[in-house]
């Protein structure tokens, strides 16, 4: 099963490679990984999406906890939480599809962040389903480039699953 794991880590040189090295060295999957500073600049937060059966996930969280620079490991999947991801999609529609692209962007509450004679770049934020949905719809219009941030997640306050 798929799990979204949040990690609080020391914001130090080499920490990212310790974490990615753990995953590659032990043959665990990483579907996405995102990193950023927290309010405390000495601490970074990472969100990792990984998959495996219960035993593997248990090992992953234990192995992460064991790393000296890891302060806290939270398996978000076990909590009620909000997940978001942002994507930037550059579409190069045929002339007759241009209006449809703009309409789709609006329906999905996307923003046009760049446009040229031949292309629009749309910014979309949402959960996985939303992103998959717009990608499916835009595909026939001609997606030229596609970048995504990887997921970030945060627990909802006061509710336990």
């Amino acid at each position: 099963m798929r799990h979204t794991i949040s990690l609080l880590v020391e914001n130090k040189f080499g920490v990212l490679s310790r974490i990615s090295g753990l995953f590659s060295g032990r043959g665990y999957n990483i579907e996405s990984l995102s990193v950023g500073e927290t309010i405390d600049p000495q601490i970074s937060i990472m969100t990792i999406v990984t998959s495996g059966d219960d035993q593997i996930i248990e090992q992953i969280t234990k192995q992460l906890n064991k790393l000296i620079d890891v302060i806290k490991v939270i398996d978000m999947t076990e909590l009620d939480h909000v997940e978001r991801e942002m994507v930037l999609i550059k579409v190069a529609p045929r002339h007759e599809d241009k209006a449809e692209v703009l309409r789709l962007a609006e329906i999905f509450r996307g923003r046009i962040v760049d446009s040229s004679q031949k292309t629009y770049t749309i910014e979309i934020t949402g959960d996985e389903k939303k992103i998959e949905a717009i990608v499916e719809l835009l595909k026939p219009m001609g997606i030229k480039e596609f970048v995504r941030t990887g997921k970030i997640a945060i627990a909802r306050e006061g509710v336990k699953k």
Binding site: F13, G14, S17, R18, G21, G25, I68
Partner: peptide, 16 residues
């Protein structure tokens, strides 16, 4: 050597 030894040490340091 910090990169090379990362997977075979409990921890390692580069003193800056």
């Amino acid at each position: 050597i910090v990169g090379i030894s990362r997977p075979c040490t409990k921890y390692n340091y580069l003193v800056k």
